[in-house]
Each structure stands twice: as C-alpha cells, then as structure tokens.
Design a binder for these strands. Structure first.
Lengths: 136, 136
DNA sequence: CTCGTGATTGACGCTTACGTAAACGTAAAG
DNA sequence: CTTTACGTTTACGTAAGCGTCAATCACGAG
C-alpha cells in the first residue's frame, strides 16, 4: 500500500504538494522564492509552505496569466499584506492601486475587443462552411 | 521651417511614422517582421507599410498587453485575414477561436477578481488613513 | 559636392523566467 | 545496510524580446 497520509492538521505543504496543486515545477517555486515572492519556513533545509505562501503562489500565477512581470507581481502581491504603516506609505499604496486599476481596465477593454472580433471571424467561418456544404 | 509634409494620399507609412504612432522602436517593428508578423512592401530596400500592416501592428501590441507570446499572437492575427479555404481549415480556425475565447474569458475573470481585491485593499488603506488623521 | 536626415543590414548584448543536469543530504521501507 | 523517495544547492543553458552599436546606403537641400 502507498501509505496515504491523512495528516490531522495539514495547514502546511511540501514544495512538491504545492507544485502539483498549481501545476508548476519545483524549479519555478524555488525561483519565485529567489525573487523574494515566497518566503517559506525552513525545517532544517527543507521548505515548509504555510497558507500564506499558498495564497501568494496563487496570486503570482494569476498575475502571470495577466501578463505582469515578476517584478510587477511582487509589488502587487506585497500590497495585499502590507502593514498599516505611516501616511506616506498608505498614500503610495493608494497611488499604486490607481495605476494597477488603470492597467487592468485597459486589459479588460483589450479582451472585450478581441472577443467581439473573434466572434466576427467565427461568424465568417460558419458562413463559409455553410456555403461549402450547400455547393456540394 | 520643418517641411511639414501633408501627402495627398497617406495610405502608407514609413517605419518611423508607425513607430511614433504606436510608441515602439524601429527595432521592435523590424523584429516583428523577422518573426513573420509583418510583411511590409519594399521600395528598393526601404519598407513601406500599408493599412493592413498598420492594423496588424495594432493587433500585435494588443496581444502583447494581454500577455500572449509572439507565437500565439501570430496564430491569432493570422486568423483575422485567413482566406476562406477548405473545410478542414475552417474547422481548425473555429477550434482555435474556441480555445482563444476560453483563455480570454479566464483572463477576464482574473482581472475582475484582481480589481475587486484591489478595491478591498484600497478601502483598508482609506480606513487606516482616516484613523491616522483622527488620532492626530 | 557635401552635409544632414532617415533608412538599411548585421551582429553582439542583455534581461526575464525558468529548464536541466550534477552532486549531495536525509529519512523511512524492505 | 541498501534502496527509494523526496528534498537540497550550485551552476550552466536557453528561448523570447528586444537594445545597442557599427557600417553602409540614398536622397534632397544648400
């Protein structure tokens, strides 16, 4: 038997478990740590990932899907668990948010345009297919 | 005076004009040609860009904003001016469209999630700022 | 003719985001 | 004890997407 462990309290993950869950390689996860995006606990030399790390990995991958660079993703993700801090920090954060929001809205517009254009192409294809079928 | 040319019929552009309009470098435009994304006319050795090329450049840059690779962009952009062709081609195109649509809708969902989370962070920031102001 | 402007083709460099060994440690199972 | 599974660091390799010279034409103005 394969010794299917059902840990009493799995609020931590190994690097392999996280990799499997998000379908990335170990290399990728270690690389993100190298870039300061993840900071897992160390038990000896072994990495232990906590819920916080898991959430951040999800955010990182979503950022990637949106076409942000890892540097950009770093500033975005760090906004999520920023300490209250002083007024200057807060104002900086608010400005960052405004900037990112503008970018995201631009992207959404790009998506909507592309989707409607794809719909046109699709309609043309369907029409051409029908023409082919009728001329047979 | 700077000899502001107002050509009687500007349905073509130089590489510099296109670069200025889309705010990219000449190198970038030539690179896209190298990758088969643009195919300008040649007058001697000089590149002449027609409306078709201009449109394609716009599509390419939009694709980049959406985080697609140049290879992916190539297949997308080529769908736009695909010849009617035979049934197999049309079916292939329709499948491509389905795939791209799914990707785009995933991205839009990513964007919406990110936007609403940014709104939360923003609210927290504003609240913290108010707290700071009141405790002064 | 000469100069300035704008174009061309190499060709090498650089950053990002990992892939891919190589060489090694550790702990449980057989 | 040896194997197996899983983890580690170090380090070189690579593909994409341009940046950045350098050397060279072509042409209109003066």
């Amino acid at each position: 038997m394969h010794n299917v462990r059902v840990p009493a309290e799995t609020s931590t993950w190994s690097i392999a478990e996280l990799a499997a869950e998000y379908d990335v390689t170990l290399r990728t996860i270690r690389f993100y740590e190298d870039r300061g995006l993840l900071t897992p606990e160390r038990r000896g030399t072994v990495r232990i990932y906590h819920p916080r790390d898991r959430v951040r990995l999800g955010l990182i991958l979503r950022g990637k899907r949106l076409g942000f660079s890892l540097d950009e993703i770093a500033t975005i993700v760090d906004m999520y668990d920023a300490e209250p801090g002083e007024a200057g920090q807060l104002v900086y954060l608010l400005n960052q948010i405004t900037t990112r929001r503008a970018e995201l809205e631009q992207r959404r517009q790009d998506i909507d345009e592309t989707l409607s254009e794809l719909a046109e192409v699709e309609a043309r294809c369907q029409a051409d297919l029908n023409t082919l079928r009728n001329s047979r």
